[in-house]
Design a binder for these strands. Sequence first.
DNA 1: GCCGAAATGTTGACACTGACAACCTGACAG
DNA 2: CTGTCAGGTTGTCAGTGTCAACATTTCGGC
Lengths: 219, 219
Amino acid sequence: MRQKAPRIGGPSASERANVKKKNRDLKEECIREGLKIIAKDGIGKLSLREVARRLGVSHQAPYKHFASRDHILAVIVARSFDAFARHLDRHPKTDDPDADMGKMGQAYLEYARRHALEYGLMFNTPLPDGRKHPEMMANAKHAFALLCDALRRKALQRGGALDDEAVMLDALFIWSGLHGLASIAASSTVDTLGIAPPILARSPMHLLRRFSQAMDTPE
Amino acid sequence: MRQKAPRIGGPSASERANVKKKNRDLKEECIREGLKIIAKDGIGKLSLREVARRLGVSHQAPYKHFASRDHILAVIVARSFDAFARHLDRHPKTDDPDADMGKMGQAYLEYARRHALEYGLMFNTPLPDGRKHPEMMANAKHAFALLCDALRRKALQRGGALDDEAVMLDALFIWSGLHGLASIAASSTVDTLGIAPPILARSPMHLLRRFSQAMDTPE
DNA sequence: GCCGAAATGTTGACACTGACAACCTGACAG
DNA sequence: CTGTCAGGTTGTCAGTGTCAACATTTCGGC
């Protein structure tokens, strides 16, 4: 076909042809580039055409790996939930459910602080429909499930009947606090609320201490 | 100019001309219609062209009232923050800071439950740049400020020095829990976590009780 | 009452997007 | 060697946001 002159913007067709099919994983490159776009300009700027341009392929090439824009977004979010779940699972269960929850709480807030973008994507973003993308939500419940498990183990250690409703209510209480503080750390809410960095730095330990105080009060 | 035949879709130019300029507030109509679109199809589907079609005006008419799509979104979010602030201000301050915080907590969670869409817009949505739209964030801090105020009054009643850092840390603790639970109520997270409606219904009182327990433990 | 300015509509145009269709090329299995 | 498949390509269409220029209505000053 006619050799096109290189255009302003992305590489020309001839330049793209020089990128070998072999030795490349375009699907993974699209995911990485997509996350870069989101990180820099926000989710609204995620565009498969822009991803294609940056990777030196045609505008349709990403659509051979992702059915739609929502599909690549679902993969990015699923990867975030998976990484989050693995991060929380680093601490093995011990015989001390309180210590387990303390460690899990720290891990939760640490993940949100270190991976603010991914945390924001999981929880503070309108996501593609979970029913159309069930794999995206496969690990979404993991943190909450770990909390429920630890609270059950704690209740059983205390003896008495296992009150599942009480477990759920306390899991909600703890998860809400963790999620609320994590959301602050993962977004510009910290600036909105005018919280000084030393305060934010101390808030995880303060939150966990208040959790202990609340949970140690008999009902 | 030539009379156009009515087109499939929105009203034709001739039909639109029949809508008098008098007796209409197109700006407010755009805001209401925009919120309807967001409520039904999500923020990604907010489109000024669609707003214009539904209101029977040309695609450019909304742009005479809003500089851009982000500007109408900023107004919608600002209105939500304002309404939220007014809702929280309904309860007057008393001599009992604990009771004040309890009432405010209930009002907070009630707003999120009754106005899930607006709550989600304020906190779980990528917003236009707050620096470009400072009026959007004018009331964003109100809830947190009320908490700080009540905690200061409580500390002063107890006597002793006013530790502003302790006040901020506890305000963060309480706000995080309120925001976390409100976010659950205002989004599909409740389905994600698999929380039964009776549990969710009881969770506000449970959260507030746990707050009291945590706060009544001397440090 | 007239006139100019402002407000707020209109039509038209452009660059960009998402996604569909059809075609092309290289790899691979039989 | 041939057919199929994977994964590229070019082209197209419908829609969007936003800019420009023009038109109409309203309003204030004289």
